Simulated scan of single mutants.
Amino acid sequence: MKLILKKIAMKYKIITLIVLFMSSLSFAQNTDAFFTSSDAFFKEYVKGGRVNYKAIKNNPAELERILASTNGITVDKSDANTYQAFWVNIYNLSVIKGIIKKYPVKSPLDIKGFFDKTKHAVGGKKITLNDIEHKLLRGQFNDARFHFVLVCAGLGCPPIISEAYLPSTLDKQLDRQTRIALNSDSFIKVNARKKRVQLSEIMKWYKEDFTQNGNEIDFINKYREEKIAEKSKISYYPYNWNLNKTN
């Protein structure tokens, strides 16, 4: 009897292992397909930090398919790189979807509730863009670099890239985009002679993210090649909400 019970237990153990293996294989296939499709989409429709909304509006099927596919994927935050890359891509794709639903528009702010009211059925949830940014990303991970990869469709935002964020390259991509923004004269305006610096309003709105280990200049100088004088006077220039569309 004991031998029979041992055989049954072993059988169930093997079955459980097979189910877990198949589930993990299916998860990997689903996430890989999402990242591959997203990468191809961004390469097709993003050029020079701008989006070809008109072309997507004329052929929205692929964008709809990619976003719909995310509802069959559950990513746990314990797998931090996959989780973050997944939701950063979803955010940027959902912004594009929100724009093309009302396109042509001059600014995302022309669409009522664009960030805080409109809900997107993505990742098995019905959530707003603000939920993705503030609850799923900023609320879970202490990384100010998110501000340089989450693109709000305004020209004041750091530029959207023509590739997907991938788990295997995420840290390098976050670092690269942060460096690009903080070394750009269009994002950081420095008057070295007068020791004055004008920063994007992003750094005013989310000041607490940039001042965890010093002040804003300390954060900027961590990534900037031409360092800013520590005692520079800081001000903030108005955010450009004009749409980041291709010309």
Rank of each mutant, 00 (worst) to 15 (best):
A164E: 06
S232E: 11
R145N: 09
K189G: 02
V151I: 15
D110M: 10
N81S: 14
N81D: 15
Y83K: 10
V122R: 10
G124I: 05
R65N: 12
K172V: 08
K195V: 04
L63S: 05
Q212S: 04
Q84Y: 01
I18A: 14
N221L: 06
E163I: 00
E226Y: 05
G154Y: 02
S200T: 07
R145P: 08
F141W: 00
S107C: 07
Q84D: 06
N92D: 08
V19D: 04
R138Y: 01
S37W: 02
K57L: 06
Y103H: 14
W205C: 03
D79H: 03
L25F: 09
K43C: 00
H120Y: 15
E208M: 07
R145E: 03
G72D: 14
L137A: 08
P159A: 09
S168F: 01
G123W: 03
N142E: 13
L5S: 11
F42V: 02
R176Q: 14
W87V: 10
K194Y: 06
N244H: 07
Y103M: 10
D116M: 06
V88P: 12
E64M: 05
P238W: 07
F219G: 03
F35W: 03
V88S: 06
Y223H: 14
L174R: 10
Q140F: 02
F210K: 09
L170S: 09
I202T: 04
E216K: 14
E62K: 14
K172A: 14
A164K: 09
R50G: 02
N213L: 04
K102N: 15
I180T: 07
K189A: 01
G123V: 00
N247T: 11
I73M: 07
Q173Y: 01
N191K: 01
N247L: 12
W241V: 00
D209F: 00
D185A: 10
V95M: 12
K2Y: 04
N59P: 01
T31P: 00
I8Y: 07
A61F: 04
L137I: 04
F187G: 03
L150K: 06
R50A: 10
F34W: 08
S184W: 02
N213Q: 13
T70R: 07
F115I: 00
I8L: 14
I160H: 02
A68F: 05
A144L: 11
L166C: 01
E62H: 08
K102V: 02
D209M: 00
N92Q: 05
G98T: 02
